[in-house]
Design a protein around this nucleic acid. Sequence first.
RNA 1: GGGGGUGUAGCUCAGUUGGUUAGAGCGAUCGCCUGUCACGCGAUAGGUCGAGGGUUCGAGUCCCUUCACUCCCGCCA
Length: 594
Amino acid sequence: MNKYRSHNCNELRRKDVGQKVLLSGWINKKRDHGNLLFLDLRDNYGITQCIINKDSSSFKELEKIQLETVIKIEGKVIDRSKETFNKEIPTGEIEVSINNFSTLGTCKELPLPVFSDQEYSEEIRLKYRFLDLRRKKIHENITLRSKVISFIRSEMGKYGFLEFQTPILTSSSPEGARDFLVPSRLNPGKFYALPQAPQQFKQLIMVSGFDKYFQIAPCFRDEDARADRSPGEFYQLDLEMSFVEQEDVFNVVENLLINTFKKFSNKKLVSEKFPRISFAESMLKYGTDKPDLRNPLIINDITEIFFREDVSFEIFKKLVKSGSKVRCIKTNDTKNKPRSFFDGIDKWAKEQGASGLAYFTFEEDDKIFAKGPVGKFFSEEALKEIMKITHAEVGDSIFLACDKQGNLEKITSMAREKIGRNLNLIDENTFAFCWIVDYPMFELNDQTKKIQFSHNPFSMPQGEKDKINFGNPLEILAYQYDIVCNGIELSSGAIRNHIPELMYKLFAIAGYDRKQVDEKFSGMINALSFGAPPHGGIAPGIDRIVMLLANEKNIREVTMFPMNQNAQDLMMNAPSEISDYQLKELNLSLKSKK
RNA sequence: GGGGGUGUAGCUCAGUUGGUUAGAGCGAUCGCCUGUCACGCGAUAGGUCGAGGGUUCGAGUCCCUUCACUCCCGCCA
């Protein structure tokens, strides 16, 4: 028999009444009636109410004992009378009468209460993460994370994928995010990089003939944090398949995600086939490549209206002439919304750094007219044209903004979300997935005006390889795709370019000559020259999947030991200074601190 | 690097127009209480009002600087 417990704290029921039991756990809560003490004992599994009265020799000691002390109790399971059942917990029909107890782990005065629904500052939670993790909600989140990961593992096994580990110490890559670097002792002056993703390795695994690979892979990127982005490290379900086209990857991942979300959440899936939206369409209709499809609002381009003679909105007309565009969001049946609703949105837009959002509402007496501060600038004909483009009816309103395309996309995208929330159009009880497909291979860097890879340089360009229009690289699309759910980018992937000659051509466009490519990507290029299968894959973000399933807005709520926004671990005191000896061994010297 | 929010007791927060000795709940300590499950009741301790500077007869409150945490922009192939 186990020394510490015969049962866990969620096991005992009425059928156990009369049994002598051993329970161990934390003191969750005490209720002291002077001559009678109730004590809730908690472990990973649940809570059992224990009871002791003043006749017992242990009574005085238990009365004084600190919450969160770890104790072992020896006692007898007894029946509760019906009026005293606790329906909140599964063990609520019994209690354990304490015969004696021993302390297994003492507890100092707590810096934060464990048994409480209060919220605490991140600082105190992260510093005392081991206490924070005892609390119900986050304890359940972390447990959920474990279950989701093991479910995914077993599913991937069923689909015939093999799980492999890839190196953590690898080489720095010129593209992408900032690397975390690790100095090499044996190779003075040289550095390893932690992998931003096992990108090259997974392709090499395909070249090695393993056909289907996956890994719950740690990824390291030295970029600034966001609510849905941990600083430093995160996990991806990294997977890669040989002899596949985009469709084959989609099938596997759609199945996996749908099974996972059905199993671990009660929220409705808007559609079991993920709709596919091209990058270009998404940027136009939603202003972003991660649209929240729960939001029914759509953005329309109405730039052409501002070339008309019968539109006198001179500010916009002038901007349009110099290359700006006008885009708008239509809201249904908002004619009775108070002025404050419209002005609130306009004010909000200005706070976001835009020049505001103009608005008007379609109304009708003997003819169509627009009500609102800028309504007078539009003729009836122009209004009818806008109604046609936006599928608007009388009573609907239009919010419009004018700017250069990039800024315009940003503000209309944010406005779509803001207006959708204000009008309560977003159903929080659903998951709306979609594929974003047909990403451009290249993009123009705004600052340098040079052409660069827009996503992954190893993606396969679309089209027959001899017919691709290399003269107009910005037109080249890639077999590059993202999964988005509720406005959160869950994963991105691609069919890879396994043809070295084609890869040299593409890298040349991005400004790398053959020699540079050979140097920077020697492992890859070399491998692709020795019989590489066509292959492709994707890498869904585990943390974000769990975040959605746990209904959390912040990734730290599903991460066991996260760092804070400044990439510090307040509990372990990382990063920390190192000794002169360590520096010397690594051939490093520090610039003097300012 | 930039913008917003927050910072008052161990924890969560209140604090009026600048005005006497800065409050509450939880927690801690002490006492009372035999059916609670957010037990109840009474008492006690606990404060560099994030830090520094300024304005003022007087600053938790106003101004400036700065620090920490957080959200966002930039960044994240």
